[in-house]
């Protein structure tokens, strides 16, 4: 049931929606444009020529710290979060279809992890490491803090994904003689694959852009979002926009790959 199209209400709402989209993307587009500012250009319009000077500057100059290292650390953390989130959330999601003792404890722990202010959880993790005599490090306590953000999202998405999964498929596989791992390999995972890509997308991008939980857990070596956050406070050239454009391009590429992969699979099945 749709309301009458082309009515006054339609145009008003469509206008509102268009404004919202402009609100959502407009500022981003402005910094994408400004990141191609000419060499003598500043942080605002007008554009003084068009160049890729500020992109080159990012990695050539030592003014911005170890951006290359931060980028590679962020990519590694993203991939590690992706893998751990996808695997553990798949199994946890499958488990949650049954009632089992402790399931609501796990569920509410996940919700807690989602709503607890990120930097505080980071504080707790960092202090925990100190207490047990470990040095916070981007790949240990850092990864843990990222997982505290990706795991709850992953589980919630698995719930939605499994909602459309018919348990009779697994029974049919068992009926055909398949054991647990065979059922998983030949039936459950292939059927759930588009949903698992979505979980993986969350796992990667949420980790890749994570700031608050990382601040007190990465130790000496920063991740890219922390470098960028530092830059917002002390860089006053369009290089700031260039790094923004650069990291957004990586995010959009990952999102694009995920969407294309999902739609190819869906198309093949219909």
């Amino acid at each position: 049931m749709k309301f009458s199209n082309r009515s006054l209400a339609f145009y008003l709402l469509a206008g509102f929606f268009a404004l919202f989209v402009a609100f959502l993307y407009g500022p981003m587009i402005i910094i994408f444009v400004l990141s191609f500012q000419g060499e003598s250009g500043g942080l605002t319009f007008p554009m003084r020529g068009v160049s890729t000077h500020w992109f080159a500057d990012l990695f050539a100059s030592s003014r911005y710290g170890d951006l290359g290292g931060a980028l590679s650390r962020s990519l590694i953390l993203g991939l590690a979060s992706l893998a751990i989130t996808a695997v553990t959330c798949l199994f946890a999601g499958l488990a949650f279809r049954n009632k089992f003792i402790g399931s609501s404890v796990i569920f509410y722990l996940a919700i807690t992890s989602l709503v607890v202010p990120g930097i505080l959880l980071g504080l707790g993790l960092g202090q925990l490491f100190q207490l047990v005599g470990l040095r916070p490090n981007w790949f240990t306590s850092g990864l843990a803090s990222h997982l505290s953000w990706t795991l709850p999202f992953g589980l919630l998405i698995m719930f939605a994904v499994l909602n459309r999964f018919d348990g009779a498929w697994e029974e049919a596989a068992r009926d055909a003689g398949a054991k647990y791992w065979e059922t998983l390999k030949f039936v459950t995972i292939p059927i759930l694959f588009p949903g698992l890509i979505a979980v993986a997308l969350f796992g990667f991008t949420l980790s890749y852009d994570e700031l608050q939980r990382s601040l007190l857990t990465v130790g000496a070596d920063n991740t890219l979002p922390i470098e960028i956050a530092n830059m917002t406070q002390n860089v006053t050239t369009p290089a700031l926009y260039a790094i923004g454009t650069f990291t957004s391009a990586i995010s959009f590429t990952v999102i694009g790959i995920a969407f294309v992969a999902i739609s190819i699979i869906q198309k093949r099945r219909n």
Partner: peptide, 20 residues
């Protein structure tokens, strides 16, 4: 279900429960 939920639960306890 316990075995399936175990890795997730364990991780969550370690990285959320214990820090809090």
């Amino acid at each position: 279900p316990y075995l399936e939920a175990l890795p997730y639960a364990l991780l969550l306890v370690l990285i959320v429960g214990v820090p809090i």
